[in-house]
C-alpha cells in the first residue's frame, strides 16, 4: 500500500504543475507576445496546432431562443452478442427521432444491426456508420434551418478507413447543401490547453468567475483555417443552462458558413431544447440515448435468434465453443 501512496504524491505534484502553471507571471518576448498565456491545442498526429489565446472577451452570453424548427437527433448503442476472443459479434441499435420545437414529431422503428468485428476501431466505425446512415435517411424529413444533432464530435478520425471518412465528409457536405444545421454534442472531450489541463475544465472554471449564474458559450477556439482536414466541425464550448454544472463541446458543421455566422442563434435554439429534469443538456439527444439502449431481454432474444441462424449453417456448436474459450475469466476468475 505504501507504494501507491507514493504514486499519489507524484501525481499530485504533476497536477500542481498543470494547474498552477498559469499563476506564474506571464513571460513575454521582445515583441510582447505572451508565451505562457493559455490557449487550446489540437494534436494532428505529431503536429500540435495552437489555437486562439483564451480571453474573457470570447465568453459570450447565451440566451434560449424559442422556435418550432424540426430537430433530428440520432444516437446508437452497442452490445456484444458473442465474444469469441479473436473476434466479436456485436449488435448496434440506432434511435432516430424528430422533434418540432419541443414536441415529438416523428420517429421510426429503431433499427438493430449486427457485425462481426476484430478490432476496437472496427467497432467504432460500425457505430459511426449506422448512426450516420440513419441520420441521412431521416434527414429527408427535415429541411432548411432544421437541425441534425449527433452525439459525437464532427471529426472523421484519421485512423478510420477511407470509406468511413468519406461517408462522414459526404454527410456534412450533403447537409450543408440542404442547409440542414449539423451539430455534434460531445459529453466528453480530450481537448486540452497548453498546460495539459482539460480545455473544458479550464473554460468551466473561468466561466464560473466571469459569467457566474449565466449560460454562455466560448468561441472561437481555433481559426477555421487551422483545423486539419479531418476536423469537419468548428468547436465551441457551451454551458447551455445557468442551472447546469456541466459544459459541453459542441461542433458545428464547418462546411456550412451560415451556421458559423449565426452561431449565437444556433446555440440559443439548441439551448431551448433542454428539459427541466436535466437542465443544461438538450433533451433530443438524451432521449435518443435512452431509447437506443439495448435491454437484457432484447440481447437474449437476439442471441437466441442468431444461434438459430447458426444452426442452419451447422455452426452453432462451434460458435459456442469459441465463446467458452473467452469466458474463462468471467466464469472462473471473476466469480
Amino acid at each position: 500500500m505504501k507504494a501507491v501512496y507514493m504514486d499519489f504524491q507524484k501525481i499530485s505534484l504533476k497536477l500542481a504543475e498543470i494547474f498552477e502553471d498559469l499563476k506564474t507571471p506571464i513571460q513575454t518576448t521582445l515583441l510582447y507576445n505572451g508565451r505562457t498565456t493559455p490557449h487550446p491545442i489540437l494534436r494532428d498526429r505529431e503536429k500540435i496546432i495552437k489555437g486562439i489565446n483564451i480571453t474573457g472577451l470570447n465568453f459570450r452570453r447565451l440566451n434560449k431562443i424559442k422556435h418550432e424548427k424540426r430537430v433530428l437527433a440520432v444516437d446508437a448503442s452497442l452490445k456484444t452478442l458473442f465474444d469469441c476472443g479473436s473476434f466479436k459479434i456485436i449488435i448496434g441499435k440506432v434511435a432516430g427521432i424528430i422533434w418540432k420545437g419541443r414536441r415529438r414529431y416523428f420517429e421510426k422503428e429503431h433499427e438493430i444491426r449486427a457485425k462481426l468485428v476484430r478490432t476496437k476501431l472496427e467497432t467504432l466505425e460500425f457505430l459511426f456508420e449506422i448512426e450516420l446512415s440513419t441520420a441521412y435517411k431521416m434527414s429527408k424529413r427535415i429541411g432548411e434551418e432544421d437541425y441534425c444533432i449527433l452525439d459525437r464530435p464532427l471529426i472523421a478520425v484519421p485512423a478510420y478507413r477511407e470509406r468511413t471518412i468519406r461517408v462522414m465528409k459526404n454527410f456534412c457536405r450533403a447537409m450543408a447543401e440542404k442547409k440542414i444545421r449539423v451539430v455534434g454534442i460531445s459529453k466528453t472531450s480530450k481537448l486540452e490547453i497548453n498546460t495539459g489541463e482539460s480545455l473544458l475544465g479550464y473554460l468551466y472554471s473561468k466561466g464560473e468567475k466571469l459569467m457566474k449564474n449565466k449560460s454562455w458559450y466560448y468561441h472561437p477556439l481555433f481559426k477555421l483555417s487551422q483545423y486539419p482536414k479531418w476536423y469537419l466541425g468548428d468547436v465551441t464550448i457551451v454551458k447551455f443552462s445557468s442551472d447546469s454544472k456541466h459544459v459541453f463541446r459542441v461542433d458545428v458543421n464547418r462546411r456550412d458558413p451560415e451556421i458559423i455566422n449565426n452561431l449565437k442563434e444556433v446555440l440559443g435554439e439548441i439551448a431551448y431544447l433542454d428539459d427541466p429534469s436535466i437542465p443544461g443538456y438538450p433533451y433530443p439527444p438524451r432521449c435518443c440515448h435512452e431509447e437506443a439502449k439495448i435491454s437484457k431481454q432484447e440481447l437474449e432474444t437476439l442471441r437466441l435468434t442468431f444461434l438459430e441462424e447458426m444452426k442452419k449453417f451447422k455452426l452453432k456448436e462451434r460458435l459456442i465453443l469459441n465463446t467458452k474459450s473467452s469466458n474463462f475469466r468471467e466464469e472462473e476468475l471473476w466469480r
Binding site: R102, R104, P276, Y283
Partner: peptide, 12 residues
C-alpha cells in the same frame, strides 16, 4: 415559481 415545460411529458 418557474414555469415548467417537460419534453415528452406524456411519455415520461
Amino acid at each position: 415559481g418557474e414555469s415548467i415545460d417537460i419534453m415528452d411529458e406524456e411519455l415520461r
